[in-house]
Simulated scan of single mutants.
Amino acid sequence: MKDFNTLTRAEMQIMNILWNKGCGMTTHEIIDVYPEPRPAYSTIATFMKILTHKKYVTSYKRDGGGKTYVFSPLITRAEYT
C-alpha cells in the first residue's frame, strides 16, 4: 500500500464529493454539489491541482470540451481510511 499524504479538511470534503458521486466530475460540478457557502471556482481549481499533485485524483480533458477537465479519484474511500 502506498504511503498517502494526509488530507486537509477541505481536501477531504472534495474527495468525499468525488467518492459519493462515483464517477468523474468537472470543477463546476463539484461546486454545484458543495454545501453553502460555496467556494470560488479558483479555490476548487487550486484544490484539484493539489489533489492531483498528491496523487489522490487524476484528470483528463472531456472529449470536445475545450479546456474542461474531469477529475476522478485514484483511490477509494476504503483505501484512504
Rank of each mutant, 00 (worst) to 15 (best):
F4T: 03
F4N: 07
N5T: 09
T6C: 05
L7W: 02
T8C: 02
R9N: 14
R9T: 12
A10N: 14
A10G: 10
E11A: 02
E11K: 01
M12V: 04
Q13K: 14
I14D: 02
M15H: 12
I17N: 03
I17K: 03
I17F: 03
N20I: 08
N20P: 01
G22H: 06
T26C: 06
H28P: 01
I30D: 03
I31V: 11
I31H: 05
I31M: 08
D32R: 09
V33M: 05
V33N: 01
Y34F: 15
E36V: 13
E36F: 04
P37I: 08
P37D: 00
R38G: 00
R38D: 00
R38A: 00
P39M: 02
A40S: 04
A40H: 13
A40Q: 14
A40I: 05
A40L: 09
T43M: 00
T46L: 08
T46G: 09
T46F: 09
M48P: 01
K49L: 10
K49Y: 01
I50E: 02
I50D: 04
L51E: 02
H53N: 14
H53Y: 07
Y56I: 02
T58D: 13
R62K: 15
D63Q: 14
D63P: 06
G64T: 09
G64W: 09
G64H: 07
G65V: 10
G66L: 10
T68S: 11
T68A: 14
I75T: 05
R77S: 13
A78E: 13
Y80G: 13
